[in-house]
């Protein structure tokens, strides 16, 4: 199909808007000045060195990785059965229950963070670490339900009936027939939930405390008091991680199918 030249130019502008800031960050991360300068005047890798020698970045990166992976696993464990029930069964109050499952996405993140802080940390006196884990798990459940639900919808239901007619119980049917056919959906869902948990600010903002904080929160504090390209360098490293994750998602489910 022949495309209109004006439309083409417009689209170029929009994607420039989306990518120029990212390119500027990447460029400044290699600068030699002690402040963020664009275009950079000299080349240096010292900001990358800086990232790896700043104790708080390394420590909170480890915490972020740990809680994001665990929270994602919990969300999947809670979300997969829920997604299966929502796609395969008809029952009373389905819409209402669906809305309940999606409520962590409807409630603004800062509100979730605030009420959980007040209720779990202050009232129930749960340790910060577990509160953070719980908060992120709840935050990721809707993701798990949505991505896995859509890959469940692609699995032909008659396949399950066939398995049951051959003598498989419901549980056997799920693990031997359904599960192998939604593994790509589960991997994609894991990756997306993980990155979303890793990137989360509003919920983790409230659920962090002495000794326990996540990388994005540390970065935010750093940005508010420093103006050097260390954050640019760290950003480039995190964007490489994002690209790696997108690559895995593309190879499993296909980016287009999200």
């Amino acid at each position: 199909m022949k495309q209109n030249k004006g439309l083409f130019a417009f689209v170029i502008l929009v994607y420039s808007f989306l990518f120029i800031p990212i390119i500027i960050i990447a460029a400044t991360s290699f600068g030699s000045e002690s402040y963020v300068a664009f275009p950079p005047r000299g080349f240096s890798l010292k900001w990358y060195h800086n990232v790896f020698t700043t104790e708080s970045f390394i420590r909170t990166f480890k915490i972020s990785m740990e809680v994001s992976v665990l929270a994602t696993l919990i969300a999947l464990a809670l979300g997969i059965p829920g997604a299966y029930a929502l796609t395969r069964f008809d029952f009373k109050g389905k819409t209402l229950l669906k809305n309940f499952f999606f409520s962590p996405k409807i409630v603004p993140g800062v509100v979730t963070g605030f009420v959980m802080f007040q209720f779990i940390v202050i009232n129930l006196k749960l340790p910060i670490y577990y509160s953070l884990l719980l908060g992120l798990s709840i935050f990721e459940i809707p993701y798990a339900i949505r991505v896995i639900g859509s890959s469940l919808e692609m699995v032909d239901y008659t396949m399950e009936e066939a398995a049951m007619s051959l003598g498989a119980s419901r549980l056997q049917t799920f693990f031997r027939v359904v599960f192998p056919n939604i593994t790509s959906g589960i991997i994609a869902s894991f990756m997306l939930s993980f990155i979303s948990a890793f990137n989360n600010v509003p919920v983790t903002l409230f659920l962090s405390g002495p000794g326990i904080s996540t990388l994005p929160i540390t970065m935010m504090n750093y940005v508010e008091y420093n103006y050097d390209p260390t954050i640019s360098a760290l950003s480039v490293l995190l964007m490489l991680m994002t690209i790696g994750i997108m690559f895995v998602v593309e190879k499993t489910l296909g980016i287009n199918n999200l």
Partner: peptide
Amino acid sequence: WAYLLMAPGLIVIVAFLIIPILSSI
């Protein structure tokens, strides 16, 4: 079956999100 499968997720959401919201507001 359907309710059983959804129960764990719903209980966690209600206990740690819905109830905290209500208790705050």
